[in-house]
Design a protein around this nucleic acid. Structure first.
Lengths: 227, 227
DNA sequence: TGAGGTTAGATTGTATGCAATAGTCTCAGA
DNA sequence: TCTGAGACTATTGCATACAATCTAACCTCA
C-alpha cells in the first residue's frame, strides 16, 4: 500500500469503529499491518493527534480518543456557524468574480467539480445506491468550503466533519435522499453572490441534518439497540 | 534543544510573524536551525499541517499558510459558540460532582490550577507586566475547556485559538486588564453548576474580546500603520 | 505480608543513509 | 527565437539501526 495514505486508512478504521476508543495504537503493529516502516505511521499519528482522533503521551504511546458522541449537540452547533461562514464567503467571492471579472483558475475547477458531484448524487439516488451518498455529501460541503478560499475554515471543517462522521459510524444515515436537493439551492445562492441567503440556507441545511441525527438516535434508543 | 518541542518552536515562529506566510519550510534547514534531525521536524510539520498553519504537498514541501486575518470575524463567531459550549459542559460536570459526589482527581487538579492562574493574573496586572497576561488568559480558557472533559472541544479550541493568536501577532492586546475580572464571574457560574449562565457569560466575554480586536484594528487602520 | 527499590523487556524517540519524485536547466531542432 | 525532450539537482519520502524512556515483574528487606 502506498505509504502516503496510511494516515487515511487509520483514520477510516477509527471512524468506522474498527478501532474502538481506548485501543492502544502500537507503532510496530500498525507498520506491519500496512506493510510500511514506523516513520509514516508516526507521521500519521501526529496528524490524527492534532485532529483529536488520537491521544498521545511521550514515550508512552497513542490510544484512540474517546468517541465524540457526548459532544454531538455542540459539534453540530459549531458546524452550523462554520458552514454558514463558508457559504457566505463563497457567495462573496462569486459576487466579486461576477463584478470584477477575475479569472481565478482554481475557482473554476472547483465550481465545475461541484456540478459533477451534484449529478453523481442524482445518479446514485436514482439507482438506489444510498451508501455512496455519504461521501458525495461530504465532498459537496468541502467543495463549498474551497470556494470560500479560506484555508482556516477548510481546516476547521476537516477537523469537525471528521468528528461528525465518527458520530454516524454505526448508522447509515437515511436522511441523504431528502437532503440532497437542498444542495442545489445553496449553490444557487452562492452563484448569485447572495451572501446572507447562502449562509442562511447552509445553516438551515446543517441544522436539519443535526435534527435528523438526533431523531435517529432517539429511535435507536427506543428500539433498544444498545442498552 | 529538546527535540520533542521543536513543533512548538516552529508554531511560535509562525504565529509571531518571524516566518511570514508563503515562506518555504525546508526540512533540512529547520533541522539544522534546531539542531535535530529531519524526523522530528517532519512530525512537527504534519501537526502544523493538520492545524492549518502550514500547507504541504507531497514531494514538493511545506509553506507557511496564509494568515487567517481575512477570517477574523468568522473565527471569533465560531469561538463564541465553542467556548460557550465548554463553559456549559464544565458547569454541568461541576453540578454532577456536587450532587453525586464523584471524586475525579483530574478535575480537582485543574480546578486548583485555575485558582493559581487567576491569582497569577492579578499579580501580573498589579505589577504592570501586561505582556505576560496573554499566556495566562490562554491558560484560563484551556483550563475551562479541560473542566468540560471533552477532548473534541479541547482539540477544536487548540486549533481555533492558535489562529486567533496569530491574528494578534503584530499587536499587543490592551484589553487584557479590563477582561481579566470577567474570568472570575465565569468560573463562579461554572462552580455553581449554572450551565446556561456559564455559557452566556463565556459567550459575552469572547464577544467583547472580538469587539476589542476589531476596534484595535480599526484604530490601526486610522493611524495608517500598514498602508 | 507488604512496601520500596531494581532490573529486564517492550515501546517510543531520533539519527543516518538511501530511494523516489518534482522542478529546473540545457540543448537540439524547427 | 521559441519549443520540447532529456538529464541534473535539490528536496522530500521512507527503511534501518540505535538511543532514551516507560512499565511491569521481581527481589530485597523490614
Amino acid at each position: 500500500m502506498s505509504p502516503l495514505v496510511v494516515g487515511a486508512r487509520i483514520r477510516a478504521d477509527i471512524i468506522s469503529g474498527v478501532l474502538e476508543p481506548g485501543t492502544k495504537l502500537r507503532e510496530t503493529a500498525l507498520a506491519e499491518q500496512y506493510a510500511v516502516s514506523r516513520i509514516p505511521v508516526r507521521e500519521a499519528l501526529r496528524s490524527l493527534e492534532a485532529e483529536g482522533l488520537v491521544e498521545s503521551r511521550p514515550y508512552v504511546g497513542s490510544i484512540v480518543a474517546p468517541s465524540p458522541i457526548e459532544d454531538a449537540e455542540d459539534l453540530f452547533e459549531i458546524r452550523i456557524v462554520l458552514e454558514s461562514a463558508t457559504a457566505r464567503r463563497a457567495a462573496k467571492r462569486a459576487a466579486a468574480h461576477a463584478g470584477g471579472g477575475e479569472p481565478d483558475p482554481r475557482w473554476r475547477t472547483v465550481r465545475k467539480e461541484i456540478n459533477e458531484i451534484l449529478e453523481a448524487g442524482d445518479a446514485v439516488i436514482a439507482e438506489g445506491r444510498f451508501e455512496d451518498l455519504a461521501v458525495l455529501n461530504m465532498r459537496f460541503h468541502f467543495a463549498i468550503a474551497e470556494l470560500s478560499g479560506s484555508l482556516s475554515l477548510i481546516s476547521l471543517l476537516r477537523q469537525i466533519s471528521g468528528k461528525i462522521e465518527w458520530l454516524y459510524s454505526l448508522n447509515v444515515s437515511r436522511r441523504g435522499t431528502q437532503a440532497w436537493p437542498e444542495h442545489r439551492a445553496i449553490l444557487a445562492a452562492v452563484d448569485a453572490g447572495q451572501e446572507t441567503n447562502a449562509a442562511a440556507l447552509m445553516g438551515a441545511h446543517v441544522a436539519r441534518s443535526r435534527d435528523a441525527y438526533f431523531a435517529m438516535m432517539a429511535e435507536r434508543a427506543e428500539s433498544g439497540v444498545d442498552e
